[in-house]
Nucleic acid binder design. Structure first.
Lengths: 147, 147
DNA sequence: CCCATGCGCGTGCGCGGCGCACGCTAATCT
DNA sequence: AGATTAGCGTGCGCCGCGCACGCGCATGGG
């Protein structure tokens, strides 16, 4: 019965999203990276890492908030030396947000820590299962119900 | 290379979690269910639906916030007639939160709408793929890195 | 060429939700 | 029974958010 699939995914996602607000995991993941890196500023970091330098307005929908929020979060990261503001060469009104080399290093550390954490939690999975799940999840995110 | 799996899952989850803050989906899912049902009160509803009546303290970690927050959200739902407070028969200090029949009806509607939305987004998947993904996701949530 | 209109960014302001701490009531222990 | 502990609801201060304004720059029309 295909209806069950929708319900199961819905329930599992619900639990997953609720747990994503837990602070403890963020605390361990961001340990030693400075006070500027937390669950609020992380979407800005990863958003920039994913697409390269871009404006706060472009980043806003990706981070799920207003441009002003992106500006404030980016300012904190700028003070910490992880993000740099550079004028858009094509439009001198615009300001592009870009990661500094230290910012890129920080994102890489976070990615590595998260990856390690995930693989540790998947220890009981076979390589095939993990591979299939990763593929499905990517497809689910890119082309699925929440694309 | 197993390391890629961790990275891919990490990236996909990151995007998924960011998108989960979008309000538009909640707006359509909760349309016509009253002003008390929104992205803030939903964790209380679904948490109660999952485990049955329980105290605010029990519910708090599940909803990712403090007991006071659960109390306030539950009060809103109580005013709307979706949640009822009943004294714990075993401990007269305690107050249990429980769904009213209307609350259960509301949760069922939400589950149904979300399930329909998900299945629509999975239209291009084969039944086997969807089934496997649902199983993997459940296992990931129950026994995985974020259990 | 210049002026008017529109766009893009940063910031002040008011609002709302959260966590913390307090008070009160009831259970438990000596 | 007195004292201590556990559990709930609420007032308070804080912080982040969205909205609206102001300023600087791009752009199109006279």
């Amino acid at each position: 019965m295909k209806n069950d699939v929708g319900h199961e995914i819905a329930d599992a996602l619900g639990v997953l999203l609720k747990r994503s607000t837990r602070v403890e995991l963020y605390r361990t993941l961001t340990a030693g990276l400075g006070d500027a890196v937390d669950e609020l500023t992380y979407p800005v970091l990863s958003g920039l890492a994913r697409t390269g330098p871009r404006s706060a307005a472009d980043l806003a929908p990706d981070a799920g908030l207003d441009r002003s929020g992106v500006t404030r979060r980016a300012s904190r990261l700028e003070e910490a030396g992880l993000v740099r503001r550079e004028p858009d060469p094509a439009d001198r009104r615009a300001t592009l947000l870009a990661l500094t080399s230290e910012g890129e290093r920080t994102v890489e550390i976070l990615r590595q820590r998260l990856s390690t954490h995930i693989e540790a939690g998947l220890a009981s999975w076979s390589a095939d299962e993990a591979r299939t799940f990763a593929d499905h999840l990517r497809r689910f995110v890119d082309d699925g119900p929440f694309a």
